[in-house]
Amino acid sequence: MKALSIVFAGTPEFSVPALEALLDSRHQVVAVYTQPDRPAGRGRRLAMSPVKQCALRHGLPVEQPGSLRDPAAVQDLARRAADLMVVAAYGLILPPAVLALPRLGCVNIHASLLPRWRGAAPIQRAILAGDQVSGVTIMQMDAGLDTGPMLLERRCPIELRDTAATLHDRLAALGADAIVQAVDALAIGTAQARPQPETDVTYAAKLRKEEALIDWSVSACQIDRQVRAFNPWPIAETRWEGRQLRIWEAYCEDVPTMTGAMGGTMAVPGRVMAADAMGLRVATGRGMLRVTQVQIAGRKVQPAADFVNAYRLEGVVLGT
């Protein structure tokens, strides 16, 4: 098998396993493209992306153009004369001039089973929607938004307690394995691209921080999915005595919520029906939500059982 020369483009932690897998393969990564260093942390100091850190550990050339529409960036990429460009959560748009440069084109590792969840946040949107299965798709890139023909798919169940963080890690590992298989097939000429179905297309819009605010009038199961989908960012939250209360972990108790008296307290959505060693039991539009990990603004995450030892919560209506 002929070894391919590859330019790798990626930025976040999701991309790192794929880069490392390619470095362990017979193929040669000739350069790494990643987004420019960004301010991070309380000190707002410039921080390198996880991909840049990985590339530097391996002594790889790193390029960080602000845009690939810059003619100088395109010329630099052309000088690499790569057979293939592998993209994994890079975060910059590849214009047609870049897509046409590598001999075998550009392929992308996308964290969904296309055409479901094209776009920026496929992992979180899959959990929010209650999907039972996810996966990765290796696709040949074109000028559209995740619309190119598919080279390879790998499926992965979404477990009942999966968060965006746990599903992210499994899909990153799955994508790393799949990209090596796809690149090997491209190298020997056996890769067969097939068009995406034109039906059942969904779009995974970028997450907005406002989506983290809990609406207690919806079902406990919907809120449970919201809590899991927004962990580790932006973290589902509610209001408590005018303060931000983040909910890091919760699960639904699928029992009817009475709108009348329950233990002498009205079970209106958001009301804390019990606060004990098991955490907070909160009424919703349907069912009860058991909250097990919380965080007050400016404090560390703590078990809800510890939180209720410090504050009187029973009977309080959250979200007000």
Rank of each mutant, 00 (worst) to 15 (best):
M1L: 11
G10F: 04
F14Q: 12
V16E: 06
A21T: 11
H27V: 01
V30I: 13
Y33T: 03
P36C: 15
P36L: 12
P36I: 15
D37S: 06
R42W: 13
R42S: 10
R42E: 14
G43K: 14
L46F: 11
S49M: 08
A55G: 03
L60G: 00
V62H: 02
S67K: 10
S67C: 12
S67N: 12
R69T: 11
P71F: 15
A73T: 02
D76L: 06
A78I: 06
A81F: 07
A81P: 00
A81H: 12
L92M: 15
P96T: 13
A97K: 09
L101D: 01
C106H: 08
N108P: 01
N108R: 08
S112M: 04
L113Y: 07
R116S: 11
R116H: 10
A120Q: 08
P122Y: 08
D131L: 08
Q132I: 04
M139Y: 09
D142F: 07
D146F: 03
T147L: 02
R155Y: 08
P157F: 04
P157I: 13
E159P: 00
R161M: 13
A172T: 04
G175Y: 07
G175N: 08
A182P: 00
T199R: 14
D200Q: 14
V201G: 03
A205N: 12
L207G: 06
L213S: 06
I214V: 10
I214Q: 10
S219K: 05
S219L: 11
Q222L: 09
I223K: 01
Q226Y: 03
A229C: 09
A229D: 08
F230K: 07
P232T: 08
W233Y: 14
I235C: 09
T238Q: 07
G242V: 05
L245A: 03
C252S: 15
E253D: 10
T257G: 08
G260D: 15
P269R: 11
R271T: 13
V272E: 03
A274S: 12
M278P: 00
G279F: 02
R286G: 05
G287H: 08
G287N: 10
M288S: 06
M288T: 07
V291N: 05
T292I: 10
Q293N: 09
I296M: 13
A297R: 14
V301F: 01
V301M: 07
V308E: 02
N309D: 12
N309K: 11
L313I: 13
G315S: 10
V316P: 00
V316C: 08
V317S: 03
V317Y: 04
G319D: 11
